[in-house]
């Protein structure tokens, strides 16, 4: 079993890495490239905390071989912000108090970001469906759903959307 050198395109930057066939994308991202935003929790595709984008589509990094991710644009949670400026979705998570322990948050953000790229004004049911593959064990789904739904269209009746100014 020999290791192979591949080029991974993560957050618009190319990285050359030496990977074994049985390395998952998540292991390479975290252990070799230090993109530790994506988390490993269950390791078998149930919890969603390792969600990243491959060519703009949300997938599980723990169930993707690193070798299968070559020549594909990968985006991790580190790629959401523009420098020090948070994306509207990230800011919305903070404003709505949608982060408790924070372990599920990177996965939630990536699933929600994929939804918002196609649909900027999702209703609550659409949001719930889009993040249905992500588990939050702090049971804070209501705040998260509001944060995603209101990320691009602040809601009149939502105190979290209006408390800023």
């Amino acid at each position: 079993m020999e290791k192979i050198t591949i080029t991974l395109n993560v957050n618009n930057e190319s990285h050359e890495v030496l990977v074994a066939p049985n390395d998952t994308l998540l292991e390479v991202l975290r252990d070799q490239l230090d993109f530790t935003g994506s988390k490993e929790s269950c390791g078998e595709g149930v919890c969603g905390s390792c969600t990243v984008h491959m060519d703009g589509k949300p997938v599980r990094a723990c169930l993707t071989l690193a070798l299968e991710a070559e020549n594909i644009e990968i985006k991790t949670v580190e790629g959401l912000a523009n420098g020090d400026e948070l994306s509207p979705l990230q800011q919305s998570f903070i404003d709505h108090g949608a982060v408790q322990c924070g372990f599920c948050t990177p996965g939630m953000l990536m699933s929600a970001d994929a939804l918002l790229n196609n649909n900027r004004q999702p209703d609550e049911a659409t949001v719930r469906k889009a993040i249905s593959g992500n588990i939050c064990r702090c049971t804070g789904y209501a705040k998260i759903v509001h944060a995603v739904a209101h990320a691009h269209n602040p809601h009149q009746g939502c105190c979290d959307c209006n408390h800023k100014e």
Partner: peptide
């Protein structure tokens, strides 16, 4: 089948 982020794109 499962959830979009788990199975649908892969």
């Amino acid at each position: 089948v499962g959830a979009e982020t788990i199975q649908h794109h892969r």
